[in-house]
Nucleic acid binder design. Sequence first.
DNA 1: ACTTGGCACTCGGAAGCACTGAGTGCTAGA
DNA 2: TCTAGCACTCAGTGCTTCCGAGTGCCAAGT
Lengths: 337, 337
Amino acid sequence: MLDDRKLAVLRAIVEDFVSTNEPVGSRALVDRHNLDVSPATIRNDMAVLEEQGYIVQPHTSAGRIPTDKGYRLFVDRLSGIKPFSKAERRAIETFLAGAYDLDDVVMRTVRLLAQLTRQVAVVQYPSLSKSAVRHVELVPLSDSRLLLVLITDTGRVEQRVVELPANFDEDSVTQLRAVLNACLDGRKLTDVPSVVAELPGRVAPRERANAAAVFSVILETLVERHEEKIVTGGAANLTATDFSRGLREVLEALEEQVVLMRLLGEFDEQAAVTVKIGAENDVFGLQGTSVIAAGYGSADRPLARLGIVGPTRMDYPTAMGAVRAVARYTGQILAES
Amino acid sequence: MLDDRKLAVLRAIVEDFVSTNEPVGSRALVDRHNLDVSPATIRNDMAVLEEQGYIVQPHTSAGRIPTDKGYRLFVDRLSGIKPFSKAERRAIETFLAGAYDLDDVVMRTVRLLAQLTRQVAVVQYPSLSKSAVRHVELVPLSDSRLLLVLITDTGRVEQRVVELPANFDEDSVTQLRAVLNACLDGRKLTDVPSVVAELPGRVAPRERANAAAVFSVILETLVERHEEKIVTGGAANLTATDFSRGLREVLEALEEQVVLMRLLGEFDEQAAVTVKIGAENDVFGLQGTSVIAAGYGSADRPLARLGIVGPTRMDYPTAMGAVRAVARYTGQILAES
DNA sequence: ACTTGGCACTCGGAAGCACTGAGTGCTAGA
DNA sequence: TCTAGCACTCAGTGCTTCCGAGTGCCAAGT
């Protein structure tokens, strides 16, 4: 259907348009790339490409620009992922290695990704459900209130206040803490609900009411409030592009955790770097953007996803390289701790 | 210098310009507000106001718009703070009351403020230095690493990994934990450094090396890493206005914690709602914006600041009302917990 | 001493118009 | 199947014209 030259033409159009942001015509094409045919020939090829929906012309007397479908073909068959140089990778590594806790790792990752790609970066915290309990702590706040702190092996800390139905004494808290840690330490968070279900039996009857309150808060923390935290950065980069449907819509979408969840949720956590182009993104407000995402974490233990959001007119090979590199090193850093 | 009518004219100009975003001329002015004088008279007044620097005309044949100085006079002498209705305050209160932990309170506050004012909201976390220690927890991570968790009475949780110079055993951790809690619980964070300085004497000699590592991390957490966290929201609202020096610059400034710190740092933590207009803000990138901020927390215990960032062309009375109301209720909610 | 009506003046923005040039589609020939 | 040539389209530019909102100023009125 599409011979080699037509593919080369498409590739050239994408590359030129990405770098100049102007519709590219047949003459400019033969000039800049050394296709040794005449503009007229290119025009014929272009006509075919347009008919098949890979390119369009914004108005009659203008050059062509790629469609979503055109970018898709480009990404799938015409370009690879541009690898990072050794020096660049070193820089990434040392920048991330300077972090001192999970929050800091995530923050640095976001900044780095935004800076490398000059797009909006989106990083999901290591998901709760993939982690295991490292420690549970109960801290008395007042006569009838406890602070429950749940620490996971990815370094994430969840805290909740527990309102107890009855007053408690120091001993019962110590006891409960011991029971919790004995039973929960090292357990996958996904296993916790079933473990907790069996706990009431291991508590003295008169403490059951209070213990039940604590248990239910634990379950809430894990299940009901299952929202995973997502951090964004580099929103200022959006101003470089003009979005068809308005910058506002995009900014609004990026501020909604729920939207971002939906967005990243559509990417496989295991998969390497994946691209969604324009309308392929059915998340409201971001249909005009492209998203490049990848899972991070070690192969046997995927943690979460990260990626970038930008205009469809994007330097895909480089951006994909950046996402892949950052995902690798972030995963690596987190595996070490 | 400026008689009553001239002030009335300035007020009218500000109000009209804020609502229409178009330079306001003498005729429109007499029409809309019932100043019972002729346009010519208004023109004379305007000439004086312009000479004094309260208003300017963008080009010769256009109406006038307020200058920073004009807005300043307006805020100081010509308008009050618009109070919120009972219903509105109720809505604020219930919205904030639904929060279940500190992070959630802050997040809700940001969202609320952004929504009420249709501007960018900026909220500073209750500052570490104003809080007291509620609990210190040490969690073993590996043979030579501990997780230090520091919980304050404002509900803030700080965590840091401590690399120990030597391996430790379970007992020594328990002991150290006990010492820490005995000495630090309830102490103001500002007092902690002096308390910690005396701690080494209370630790068994063979544990001193490890203990010292823990102590130094505590000090770092409080002093070196003294950065206070600031959260923003509602960036999408910026798209409604066009900034002279570019949206990008503003967005970039808002992403920099350091810049935001400087920004809020210029507002008195005790003071009620305060306004900085345009160039009065000397923080880079935000000279073209106005900032309205207020401290929150109870009178005897100020916690931190919150506010909004927007164009100089802003409905000051309403925005000030919103900031004041939100500051009050947020302070109230936090005082309760 | 202020206010007002009148009047000439300014200037941004819209509208109309011609021109240019990049780019196209088509057709006929190599 | 490619190429050369040609007529056509149309966005963008630059020019002019016109309109009207708005001003500043002056002389007369209160």
